[in-house]
């Protein structure tokens, strides 16, 4: 075996070992590196109450209610499996709207209502001009109504 080949084998073995180690580390991080919890986890009771965390899902269409004071809103987040009610006092980002993704930062109350002190909007990977979406919507509305789309939590 030439020295060149020896070095190549050594380098490849080292790289393979590093990839393996990183893969193990990443899969161990799977739960803790998650940015947010989901309504399904809340429903399953695995989300601790009273601890600061993030809850994310899609804002259920028609669920946003504004309190008389004008700054408190109530809405419901959903992923495919479950729903979770959220209240929030403050100003929401422009992209926060019914039918699109949102991340609520706050605490889960013992009554099961998530009290948010900050709202982030989540954008999906689809980018399209405004007139195209309205065209798609009118087309979509004809056969099916109120479809949540494939928006991901």
């Amino acid at each position: 075996m030439k020295a060149k080949h020896q070095r190549l084998v050594l380098a490849l073995v080292a790289v393979a070992a590093i990839i393996g180690a990183a893969f193990l580390a990443m899969s161990a991080l799977k739960d803790t590196a998650a940015l947010f919890r989901t309504p399904t986890e809340v429903a399953a009771g695995t989300v601790p109450t009273g601890k600061p965390l993030r809850l994310a899902g899609m804002v259920v269409p028609g669920s946003i209610q504004r309190d008389p004071d004008g700054v408190t809103i109530r809405f419901v987040l959903t992923d495919e499996g479950a729903t979770a009610p959220v209240t929030f006092r403050g100003i929401t980002p422009d992209l926060f709207k019914e039918g699109s993704g949102a991340v609520a930062e706050g605490k889960l109350g013992t009554d099961g209502v998530f009290v948010a002190d900050n709202i982030l909007a989540k954008h999906d990977e689809r980018y399209m001009p405004p007139q195209m979406e309205s065209a798609m919507k009118s087309e979509k509305d004809k056969p099916v109504t109120g479809g949540a789309g494939e928006a991901r939590p």
Binding site: L29, K30, A33, V103, L120, D124, E125, M128, P129, M132
Partner: peptide, 29 residues
């Protein structure tokens, strides 16, 4: 890790718009 972070973990950053098999950005943009 950067490339697949949006697939492995739930993130605020959206998943990839462009890959070898799909593109979810409209042509005009």
């Amino acid at each position: 890790i950067i490339k697949y972070s949006v697939d492995w973990w739930n993130t605020l950053h959206q998943t990839a718009s462009i890959s070898l098999t799909k593109n979810t950005i409209d042509g005009s943009i």
